[in-house]
Design a protein around this nucleic acid. Structure first.
Lengths: 210, 210
DNA sequence: AGTTGTGAAGGTATTCACAGCG
DNA sequence: CGCTGTGAATACCTTCACAACT
């Protein structure tokens, strides 16, 4: 049975949340998840019920975080396998991710960084190797990278995205303000401060109107 | 007539898009917007039809970008008035916004930056004033700031958010990986790389399954 | 008791198809 | 004619209420 888009997105965030606080594997109820996320407990239960594998997850005092997170990851496509990412553009925003620890418990790992400025590539330090941009075509397939985090200056965004797709990248998180066209088979997620502010303002103007 | 949430969010992004490329005010058709955004042209027309003021926007060759953007901003609450924001936390991510030019054409303006480290406040340069954190309570109401961009380290996020709300902030763009509880009347938008990657992976696992 | 799990009902958003207008 | 604008139909998601389980 197909899983709906809103459900998939909620489950994905839920998995991250569970992975973050997975030190203790004490059961968590749908009511507790409601407090943490703001989603109604029915919604959460319904979402969970659409997982392909549902045995050994629920007890009479709630869901087991580890098993639930694992079940979500399985249903959403990546069973145990790490999802490899790269950072493209090591300016202010890009280099801010070099020492970001949040990836540790997630299924995503940064495997490489790219920048057209060779100086930056040599000076900056990270837990993963940094390369000049022209090596993308060689490195990306070799390391099995399928996701890119795009943090180049706005004027280079379109070209960089095109090249990445050409290298076999199938998912781009776009931190530039440029709206990138998404060819079939490639998913692009815009992450923009202005969009975020706009979304907040939009929601507010609805709530105050009723 | 109330406007739906998805519609409001689409309109908000559309306004940003129009404002970005507003040099020429040549008409743009719903079909062209479809190419740029990926939303069906019906959806766009329906969204636009729900605006409160619809005169002088459409011609027989498309919509006039400037008037359309203006009409959207009016319907969504802020007619002409600038929306004031502040940045809280001037570490790697926060300071990356200091010279971000994208706000220029948007209805949002950054009015202040805050950091608990007094050194940073004194050394960093920006187009707006920087203050030590303890001055928030004084500055935020004085400058009429209602939105905050939260870029402090994860362990300070919860406390910082609480204080901001206490100062009268009603919208927070949360760049930390911490999931913040949103009290009534306050809108919080999580902007996280892991969420973005998760959303992409989730959408992909749906598309490939059918 | 307290939970999860789920068919059925209800509400919302999207899509369609065509009328209306410049 | 090409475009927008919009009621009606469809599809979708969420919510409810209660059964099933521990």
């Amino acid at each position: 049975m197909a899983i709906s888009k809103p459900t998939a997105e909620r489950l994905s965030r839920l998995a991250l949340l569970l992975e973050q606080q997975s030190e203790e594997n004490t059961p968590i109820t749908s009511a507790e998840i409601e407090v943490l996320t703001g989603w109604a407990s029915h919604t959460i239960r319904k979402d969970i019920s659409s997982l392909t594998k549902t045995s050994g997850i629920a007890t009479n005092t709630g869901y087991l975080p580890c098993e639930l997170a694992k079940a979500i990851r399985e249903t959403l496509g990546f069973a145990g396998t790490e999802q490899n990412c790269c950072i493209v553009g090591l300016g202010r925003i890009g280099s801010a991710f070099l020492d970001y620890k949040g990836f540790a418990e997630s299924p995503f790992t940064i495997r490489a960084g790219f920048d057209s400025n060779v100086n930056r590539v040599e000076i900056l330090k990270a837990d993963f190797p940094l390369y000049p941009t022209f090596k993308m075509k060689e490195i990306i397939p070799r390391l099995g990278i399928s996701y890119a985090i795009l943090t180049v200056p706005a004027e280079q965004a379109a070209l960089a995205a095109e090249r990445l797709i050409d290298c076999g990248i199938t998912g781009i998180v776009n931190f530039t303000p440029v709206l990138l066209p998404a060819p079939p088979g490639v998913e692009i997620e815009q992450v923009s401060i202005l969009d975020a502010l706009g979304a907040i303002a939009a929601r507010r103007s609805i709530n105050t109107k009723e």
